[in-house]
Design a protein around this nucleic acid. Structure first.
Lengths: 228, 228
DNA sequence: ATTACTATCTCACGAGTAC
DNA sequence: TGTACTCGTGAGATAGTAA
């Protein structure tokens, strides 16, 4: 039983679109070729091969040829369509980070506890985060790239503000899951004091305590995103 | 802007299934090759070309390579999936017959008016048909073939019966539309008195009168069927 | 006008192999 | 282990053309 050749997929799709599932449709190899961006000769060969392999039936009436798709042909197309559709849908809708917990520098805690931020956390996240950030050193280049991916997705925006001394940048929040179970919020900062390979997380409670993780532990963070 | 090559479709689908939409996934060209039923070398080339054409991004970490599908790649796959899906769905769910009206031989009328049939018509179709059948001479070989197609689909079964003299065969009814507007019922008989190229229709009223068609008129009959 | 043959070309694939 | 080069083979495409 010969497999359906990939290059025949579009040809079958075109015939299907022309209504060749249940009725013989009369179509010239020239127009079929145009539809699939191939030559008349290629279309003719496609039909011959599709017929040989049992995906279509053909019927000559003089010069013209009518074509109909067989049940086998239809089944095969449905199969391929399903494969494509499910592979598109099955794509997980999260960005994943993997790395190891590193000791925070205390800085994050200081900034995140400022009244200008806390007020917004309370209203936009629904709580005031535990004073302190969990810092994760990313394991690989691809996770650093993933950070850039995140930038293209919307997050919860915490606006910057000023006090007497200086201005403080915005903070973007991405609700996420640690090790697929604990809720936390990955934050990206307008003005970061880390290099690219470290990400910071905040949470309602002390993350290390709740997850029983400590400095050096391997950790996975998943940020759900809306698939487009 | 190079088009996505057909042979790359399955490769992209495989990457999609592996979750490479939002995250870089580490996959060896050997295993990728196996998944798409190609060699390691083919898989490697696919990835190189997909990258060259902007459908995936790659990232080397030493020997291994991580792959992620770009927005362009995802869009393209979605496009193809939609084309296939809609071509499968758009396929009209009817079998069509075209031909010319020929004068009935009166026989049909006689048989169809028998009490053994009439009782069943009344209960299964909801009415007693006009006494007389519309005979249509099919125009082309493909419509004769379409009759065979119809046989594989279920219709409303009118059982045969016997009287003192003889037995009468079953009649299978397919509700249909004449010229896409008038309701009628195409019937196939266990024992037909026509050759293959003629079909018969019955209806509540006199079809010729209602449609203002007469012997010699071109006519189209569509029999809706359940697509499988 | 339309199909499909033949010849030719291109490029997709796998084998072998370097790194 | 891995990736990806070169190279040979053959499938798939086109041009030209017969029917």
């Amino acid at each position: 039983m010969p497999e359906l050749k990939v290059q025949h997929i579009l040809t079958l799709a075109e015939l299907l679109a022309k209504g060749a599932r249940h009725n013989f449709v009369t179509i010239t190899t020239l127009s079929l070729g145009k539809s699939i961006n191939k030559s008349q000769q290629a279309a003719s060969k496609h039909l011959l091969e599709l017929e040989r392999d049992g995906y279509v039936e053909r019927m000559r009436s003089g010069q013209r040829v009518s074509v109909r798709i067989t049940t086998k042909g239809h089944t095969e197309m449905a199969r391929i369509s399903t494969i494509l559709k499910s592979s598109l849908e099955s794509s997980p809708s999260y960005v994943e980070f993997k790395g190891t917990i590193v000791s925070g520098m205390g800085e994050g805690a200081y900034y995140m506890s400022m009244k200008g931020y806390e007020k917004q956390f309370k209203s936009k996240l629904g709580y005031i985060p535990f004073p302190g950030t969990l810092n994760v050193k990313l394991k690989d280049k691809e996770f650093i790239e993933a950070k850039r991916t995140l930038d293209t997705h919307p997050g919860i925006m915490i606006n910057g503000f000023s006090d007497d001394k200086r201005t403080y940048g915005w903070v973007k929040c991405y609700p996420s899951k640690i090790n697929n179970s604990t809720d936390a919020v990955l934050i990206t900062l307008e003005r970061t004091h880390h290099d690219d390979s470290v990400i910071e997380l905040i949470s309602k409670e002390n993350i290390k305590k709740i997850t029983k993780l400590s400095t050096g532990s391997q950790i996975s963070i998943r940020v759900p995103i809306r698939s487009k």
